[in-house]
Amino acid sequence: AQVHVDGVTYDFDNPEEAEKFAREMAKRKGGTVEVKNDQWHVE
């Protein structure tokens, strides 16, 4: 699973880890999390 944050792509073998990371980053940035094509996007 991939997580996109500020133009940087992070690869995770485990989708749950990807989701956890995406939500944590969004919380830190005060942003939102979107899922597109099985990829997490932190805005």
Rank of each mutant, 00 (worst) to 15 (best):
residue 1 A to N: 13
residue 2 Q to L: 09
residue 2 Q to M: 08
residue 2 Q to I: 09
residue 3 V to W: 02
residue 3 V to D: 01
residue 3 V to A: 02
residue 4 H to P: 01
residue 4 H to F: 14
residue 4 H to G: 02
residue 5 V to P: 01
residue 5 V to F: 11
residue 5 V to E: 01
residue 5 V to S: 05
residue 6 D to Q: 05
residue 6 D to S: 07
residue 6 D to L: 06
residue 6 D to V: 03
residue 7 G to T: 02
residue 7 G to N: 06
residue 8 V to M: 12
residue 8 V to F: 11
residue 8 V to I: 13
residue 8 V to T: 09
residue 8 V to K: 12
residue 8 V to Q: 10
residue 8 V to D: 04
residue 8 V to L: 10
residue 8 V to S: 05
residue 8 V to A: 08
residue 9 T to S: 06
residue 9 T to P: 03
residue 9 T to E: 03
residue 9 T to G: 01
residue 9 T to N: 03
residue 9 T to D: 02
residue 10 Y to V: 02
residue 10 Y to H: 02
residue 10 Y to T: 01
residue 10 Y to Q: 00
residue 10 Y to W: 08
residue 10 Y to M: 02
residue 11 D to F: 15
residue 11 D to I: 14
residue 11 D to L: 14
residue 11 D to R: 14
residue 12 F to H: 00
residue 12 F to G: 00
residue 12 F to Q: 00
residue 12 F to T: 01
residue 12 F to E: 00
residue 13 D to L: 10
residue 13 D to W: 06
residue 13 D to N: 11
residue 13 D to T: 09
residue 14 N to Q: 05
residue 14 N to A: 06
residue 15 P to Y: 12
residue 15 P to G: 08
residue 16 E to M: 10
residue 16 E to W: 13
residue 16 E to G: 07
residue 18 A to L: 01
residue 18 A to T: 00
residue 18 A to Q: 01
residue 19 E to Q: 05
residue 19 E to K: 04
residue 19 E to I: 07
residue 19 E to H: 04
residue 20 K to Y: 08
residue 20 K to P: 00
residue 20 K to F: 08
residue 21 F to L: 01
residue 21 F to V: 01
residue 21 F to K: 00
residue 21 F to A: 02
residue 21 F to R: 01
residue 21 F to I: 00
residue 21 F to G: 00
residue 22 A to K: 02
residue 22 A to W: 04
residue 22 A to V: 02
residue 22 A to I: 03
residue 23 R to G: 02
residue 23 R to D: 04
residue 23 R to E: 06
residue 23 R to Q: 08
residue 24 E to D: 08
residue 24 E to M: 12
residue 24 E to L: 11
residue 24 E to K: 08
residue 24 E to I: 07
residue 25 M to F: 05
residue 25 M to H: 03
residue 25 M to N: 02
residue 25 M to I: 10
residue 25 M to G: 00
residue 25 M to P: 00
residue 25 M to D: 00
residue 26 A to L: 05
residue 26 A to F: 02
residue 26 A to H: 03
residue 26 A to W: 02
residue 26 A to G: 03
residue 26 A to P: 00
residue 27 K to F: 11
residue 27 K to E: 12
residue 27 K to Y: 12
residue 27 K to M: 12
residue 28 R to F: 11
residue 28 R to Q: 13
residue 28 R to P: 02
residue 28 R to A: 12
residue 28 R to L: 14
residue 29 K to Q: 11
residue 29 K to F: 15
residue 29 K to E: 06
residue 29 K to M: 15
residue 29 K to N: 13
residue 30 G to M: 06
residue 30 G to L: 05
residue 30 G to S: 06
residue 30 G to I: 03
residue 31 G to T: 10
residue 31 G to H: 10
residue 32 T to D: 05
residue 32 T to I: 12
residue 32 T to Y: 14
residue 32 T to A: 07
residue 33 V to F: 08
residue 33 V to P: 04
residue 33 V to H: 04
residue 33 V to D: 03
residue 34 E to N: 13
residue 34 E to K: 14
residue 34 E to Y: 15
residue 35 V to Q: 12
residue 35 V to M: 14
residue 36 K to V: 13
residue 36 K to P: 03
residue 36 K to W: 13
residue 37 N to L: 09
residue 37 N to R: 07
residue 38 D to Y: 10
residue 38 D to F: 12
residue 39 Q to R: 09
residue 39 Q to V: 14
residue 40 W to F: 13
residue 40 W to N: 03
residue 40 W to R: 04
residue 41 H to F: 15
residue 41 H to R: 11
residue 41 H to Y: 15
residue 41 H to P: 03
residue 42 V to I: 09
residue 43 E to N: 14
residue 43 E to A: 13
